[in-house]
Simulated assay, not measured.
Amino acid sequence: MPEAHRKLERNAIGFVLAIIGVSAIGGLVEIAPLFTIHETVETAKDMRVYTPLEVAGRNIYIREGCYACHSQMIRTLRDEVERYGPYSLAVESKYDHPMLWGSKRTGPDLARLGNKYSDAWHVAHLINPRHVVPQSVMPRYGWLMRNEVRIDDAGQHLAALRVVGVPYTDEMIANATKDAYGQANPDSDQAAGVTQRYGEATNVRTFDGEPGRLTEMDALVAYLQVLGHLTDAAYKQTSSAKE
């Protein structure tokens, strides 16, 4: 075998062809499953897209590196399912760009975090994690309450996501800025349009506890409160399995 390898290395054309052959095999193994992806990814008729405020919150989540310590993928292992809830389905991350499943957990998995805790709990936790979890090693994010979130470009973010396959309508894109404000200000004129465009189950409330002012805390908490609730597919699958 070593002698054959030496001969191959001395034959430039043969070595190039061998590299191409091995690369082609590796590429085929990686690409072939994509042709049957429609058979492996579940469908969910109740799947909804992120609202403009939730998109802004997700962008902040990525900016602050939250994904580095919190995965958003519950494995099929029994201990994970018992601790976090139904295991993650591919369809639940259908509209995630980029994907944030991850494998590193300094903190708990957040795939089913939505509405598990109150908005006030999240605000307190982000301002100083030790106030609610004494043993936490998570850093503070108090500036989120001071920073106003930028929403004037919300429509551009939605338009960009539509390019990669997220089914935002022209109406959603045109009203993105209004909807971002309305979702965190339930008493405003813009609030009704949010549920009209994104569904009655959409969280519309003052996430950071300070009405009239839209902060990065509003956006991040809005995002955290929807994790695991874009569709009920995982819960329905769990119920079917028990039956």
Rank of each mutant, 00 (worst) to 15 (best):
G212D: 14
E80D: 15
P134G: 12
K94D: 05
N147A: 12
Y87Q: 00
E82G: 02
P211D: 12
T106W: 12
G228H: 11
R83W: 12
R58C: 00
G102V: 00
Y141C: 08
E3W: 11
D232R: 10
P98Q: 08
V204N: 07
D170Y: 14
A124V: 10
L161C: 10
P134K: 13
Q72S: 03
T206P: 13
D153R: 08
R63Y: 07
L158W: 05
I62H: 00
D187I: 00
S103M: 00
D179Y: 03
M1F: 15
P211F: 15
N115F: 07
R78L: 12
Y141V: 07
R58I: 00
R162L: 07
A176H: 03
L77S: 14
A44R: 02
A219M: 03
E30G: 11
R197I: 00
Q156S: 11
M172R: 05
S239R: 15
D119I: 04
V123Y: 04
H229C: 08
R162H: 14
T36K: 03
G65P: 04
A111H: 09
R140N: 15
N128H: 15
V29I: 07
T215A: 06
A56E: 01
R146G: 13
V137Y: 13
G182R: 03
K94M: 12
A4E: 10
H38Q: 14
G228A: 14
S23Q: 15
N147F: 06
